[in-house]
Amino acid sequence: MYDFSFQSPASAADAASALGAAEDGKILAGGQTLLPTMKQRLAMPSDLISLKGCRDLVGISSDGSTLTIGAMTTHGAVAASTEVAKAIPALSALAGGIGDPQVRNRGTLGGSLANNDPAADYPAAVLGLGATVVTTKREIAADDYFQGMFETALDDDEIITAVRFPIPQAAGYAKFDNPASRYALVGVFVAKTAAGPRVAVTGAGQGGVFRASDIEGQIASGQEPNSASIDEGELNGDIHASPAYRKHLIGVMAKRALASAG
């Protein structure tokens, strides 16, 4: 890992100005993606701006219709929260299934969303629930936030401060995990909302997380979900699974997610 200069500001606003002022600055949240990437010299920022002192970015609250989670809240804290378990149990289960306990003790919601790994879990929940990503500059609807593999709508000097999840009637998440890394080979999040079902698929798409509108239609009309209409040409193939296998898994995971939503 190359050296860098390190800052630890006390608020998200100060962190955003430090980020704007740095030559090639990066935010450090839980470090569970960024530090391994820096060890491999795939990232070599001039400055790391740590969010650990930004107490304004940590916390979980619910007003009965919206669950708000601060960007620096760890996966472990989300999995253990009774507030989350009451409002959106599928989100507790999703957070508790990320990586391993030590990754969950450090990794954060904001870090996962900023990174937008095509096999990450949180993007499926954020898109599936139609959540709002709140930043130091604006509020971004999930449908506009994810812009492709490792790409998001965030500006270079923009920091995620929180995510607002509308509380659905019911929701479920099913992931077929890569047995080595626990990342999703395919993960499907199903939410039943007043405006109809929403279905988001992670792990499978070449462009990262995506909504499966045909499956949403099937669920709305009471049919069993299937992935027949998903275009295999848009799916990932690698040593772990071919596009055809991932296509098949989307249907299976959609059924399981729907069943767990009840």
């Binding site: 569970q32 530090l35 030590q102």
Partner: peptide, 27 residues
Amino acid sequence: CDTSQCGACVVHVNGSSVKSCTMLAVE
């Protein structure tokens, strides 16, 4: 390891187990 996967480096920080190879000393 160099990939944050093996757990040989686990210590407790403020009572929680973490991978000490994936946390900066300054943190």
